[in-house]
Amino acid sequence: MTVIDVHAHVFPRLSQAEARVLGGPVEPWLRVLGDGTGMMMNGDQEYRPVRAPLWDAEQRLADMDTFGVDTQAISSTPLLFGYGAEPERAREWCELVNDRILDYCAQAPDRLLPLCQVPLQDVALAAEMATKAAAAGHRGVHIGNHVGSLDLDDAGITDFLAHCAEQDIPVLVHPWDMLGAERMNHHMLAWLVGMPAETHLSILGMMLSGSFERLPESLKLCFCHGGGSFAYLLGRAENAWHHRHVVRSDSPKPPSAYVRRFHVDSAVFDPRALRLLVEVMGADRVMLGTDYPFPLGEQQPGEAIRNCAELSELERDLILGGNAMRFFGTEAS
């Protein structure tokens, strides 16, 4: 079985001068310190310390060999999205980032699958760039779960997702710019609480707004971090849909009717949580995801999958790689 990690990040070598194309307060760039470490920068401010596999493909491949990962889908670090920039500036920025991701993945094209990013603040431009990036060799598109106040159920973003479905471009959704950040500015609570909440908000918003009714069933859509808190709270949403008209006003079906319309990754870190996730989603809708190479990611890729005693051997194989093969079309399953 080929082991495929669908949730692995890259931060290409980008200089502060290059980041200035964004023309705003968010200017992400990478300061490499020369000792195997670096610093993600936001303008002149230090954002987060990082290590070399984030920008060094050779070290990434060595880690993959150590951990028994055959293939990674490579997506940008969300700080790079550039959603706050003027669209034409964002186009230039995304083209730069996408080219760097292609260059990075070209060092092992049979093992590193590049995912592009797009200026989602302009959905027509985003659709155009997604098509262009797919023609250039990108295997999917990586987007944030919202653009400012616009969530995935926004009509324009729904149009973009429909375009991806029509073009057979897989979509990986990552939470970012978390809600309530002013109350979660300590102990990494924005990541521990905000990220799961953001993803739950996106999934449930698409269900209750009727977005899935308007989207082709062919859409390949995957939410990171196990879908956030969605699986655990699905029963609450079901109860509300059945007993409160305001909840079901735009959705002809209860939330459980739409769980087969998307995938999630396995980054829940606990076999008990994974068991529930598989029960809710189905074993064919969960794919290995680690959040590599960040410290909050799964340190031993696939550990929760292998330690989940309730999974059959076939289910483990599907989650470790079989589902991802179908999702990205890497080979017939």
Rank of each mutant, 00 (worst) to 15 (best):
I4D: 07
V246E: 15
C116I: 12
S209F: 04
P255L: 13
A283V: 01
N98Y: 05
I143L: 11
T158H: 07
L125K: 04
L14V: 15
D159P: 06
H245V: 11
S266W: 03
A130F: 01
A19V: 06
V171E: 09
P25K: 14
G137W: 08
G329C: 04
L215C: 02
Y258Q: 09
D154P: 01
L22Q: 01
E238L: 12
A162K: 04
C164L: 02
R89H: 09
L189D: 05
L277H: 05
D291C: 03
W55L: 14
D317Y: 11
V171T: 09
P196I: 13
A155E: 08
G210E: 00
F269R: 03
F212V: 01
R275V: 06
S76M: 07
T77Y: 10
P252N: 07
S251R: 03
V141N: 03
D35I: 15
L172G: 00
D103I: 11
V264E: 00
S251V: 00
A85G: 04
F327H: 06
D284V: 02
R139Q: 13
E58N: 13
P49Y: 13
L113D: 00
M64S: 00
V21Y: 12
L192D: 11
Y292R: 11
A19S: 13
P295Q: 10
A135C: 01
I203A: 11
D153Y: 08
T131R: 15
S249C: 08
E166M: 13
T290N: 14
G194E: 15
E86K: 14
R261W: 04
V97A: 03
A231H: 11
P293K: 12
R91G: 02
A332N: 10
E213G: 01
V123S: 05
G329K: 02
M39Y: 12
F294W: 14
E166R: 10
A181I: 15
M41W: 13
P216A: 06
N185C: 12
V286L: 02
D103M: 10
I305K: 08
L112D: 08
D122I: 07
T37I: 02
P216V: 01
L112K: 04
A273P: 11
H7F: 15
V246T: 07
A17R: 09
P53Q: 14
H163I: 03
G282A: 01
E86H: 13
A240G: 03
L115S: 05
G329H: 09
R51H: 11
N145L: 07
A304S: 11
R183H: 12
G282I: 01
H7W: 15
S149Q: 03
P175N: 09
R31M: 09
